[in-house]
Write a protein that binds this DNA or RNA. Sequence first.
DNA 1: ATGAAAGCGCTAACAA
DNA 2: TTGTTAGCGCTTTCAT
Lengths: 337, 337
Amino acid sequence: MSSDRKSPTMSDVARKAGVSAMTVSRALKADSVISPETRSAILTAAEELGYIFHATASNLRSQKTDFVAVTIPSINNANFADTVAGLSEILSGRNMQTLLGYTNYDMDVEEQLIEQLLRRNPQAIVVTGGRHTPRARRLLENARIPVVETWDVPDQPIGHYVGFSNADAVRAMVDHFVSVGYKRIAFIGGDQGRDTRGSDRRRGFVAAMKAHGHDDIRLIAAGAPPISMREGADAMARLLQEYPDTKVVICVSDLSAFGALTECQRRGIVVPDQIAIGGFGNYEISGVCVPSLTTIDAHSREIGRRTGSLILDLLNGASGSMQVNIEPGLIIRQSSL
Amino acid sequence: MSSDRKSPTMSDVARKAGVSAMTVSRALKADSVISPETRSAILTAAEELGYIFHATASNLRSQKTDFVAVTIPSINNANFADTVAGLSEILSGRNMQTLLGYTNYDMDVEEQLIEQLLRRNPQAIVVTGGRHTPRARRLLENARIPVVETWDVPDQPIGHYVGFSNADAVRAMVDHFVSVGYKRIAFIGGDQGRDTRGSDRRRGFVAAMKAHGHDDIRLIAAGAPPISMREGADAMARLLQEYPDTKVVICVSDLSAFGALTECQRRGIVVPDQIAIGGFGNYEISGVCVPSLTTIDAHSREIGRRTGSLILDLLNGASGSMQVNIEPGLIIRQSSL
DNA sequence: ATGAAAGCGCTAACAA
DNA sequence: TTGTTAGCGCTTTCAT
């Protein structure tokens, strides 16, 4: 609380240290030319006054900020958290921050969020997914900063992208199950258009099944994203009722896959002996639960790191449209052995 | 990408609409007095130019921002995510944003983060926990904005707090186990001072055991926070080796509790018949897994909501030191029945 | 190595 | 209802 007067500015520090405001500005930058004595006197004065650097004024005058804006669907998702961590890891090496916003898997929220973020003048913007509202797309196209789409391979990239095909990833899992002799394969989730990654995965499932000549497509809806463990369990219950002879179920994420597993446990259905389960995302739980879950690793952290390097390159003057494809990995575990 | 010229400013919009910059400024504020025709002409001009409002300049001139800064230990934790969601829910009603940063459970990182956030002039700052480095404490004390500490009952509150006693919450769980006749109770986690909430929980465990005359205190370390499911499983393995006759284990969080449960499953140890398990946090998994886990609900979302209302009150001129205690709830589930 | 003047894009304050 | 002037706190630019 202390005093109720205004916060001290550089001029206040300058007065106290007996120098000009410009010299204070220089003293606070690591790389500028200034005598060691002057600098230490200024730093002491600043500390004594409780001076806090005013980033807003600095940003306005220098016409640049020190952060990159990022939109992710959910703040509470280990996959997206890993991507952000990878991105921050790279950017922090250049003293850049990450300004985070979440869309709650809603494209309209994403549109508003993108506008909010652009108003703060980020040096670059990273969005999750390759589909957006028309206005969001326009905002991104008109932004005079690098735009990177992630976690997808956009049909028409706005600028750059670092991602993978959700459809192809699931297709690879279906191919695996078919190749080891499984039949009567079902898919849980991805029914709402809102989460394009989820519906892409479902689309990949359907395409793969048809490619293998399986016309018996078993789809179970699981509601709006994010699909919870509980919704996965409920969907499993419906699957067992509608298609009791199903031998494999692929779930839109590891969380719903775990929920499905628990439903089997409650009913005394043995996994994988009676039914095999596959998930998506390689969340920690899929490697720890009993039995452990077969899944797809999207290399979330690597997506973030590659995005970070890409942005640094672009800010350093690199040009051209960068398209980075990350190959997801199939991890076979106990739930399908 | 479009043109490489500068971004349009209010003056550009004003010229195009044939009005002054000030009128444009008014047109973009929802509540200002301006004729409908002028406003719509201005909005059209702005849209055609692809004008983006420059929040930095606005913030500098008006000496205020539209956001509240928040520090949480981890971006990928459902409890803290719920608190942030509750806070955002309240603040968004007043068109305020949340500027989020995470400390990775490290007080030194927290100190740097607090300084970074204060440089951007938030209208208030919310921190997780009631203990900080001396410098972080000083920064918060000198900040001329409301400071709210959460998820704890600070010994010496800096400004306001919305929280609960982690020690008391675990004490209540121990009391419950003792009251239903359990003996030989152990605790996993909370050994590193870094995560003060974890060590407070452990402290509460020790205090409760002593209060009940149990001198046989069984503590198993689980490493640095955040304690993962895997670390919970490893700690359980060590517990079974060191104290094989343990009848109850309380874990520092539901995630480590679930890990401990899986270790029992891998070894054919039946929960709760051979050993009961308790967690902390009421994460979704604790209600879904088989058997479901007894836990403590800290009312994470409510903490966020109460914090939000508190901040709005303070920004509206309320004074005094607000101390809000949230009572955690004990949830008994299959793992201890 | 340091200082003086100007101005980044908005909006408070006042005027019309 | 709309316009004019000044200035928020910094840093660019140029000078010494």
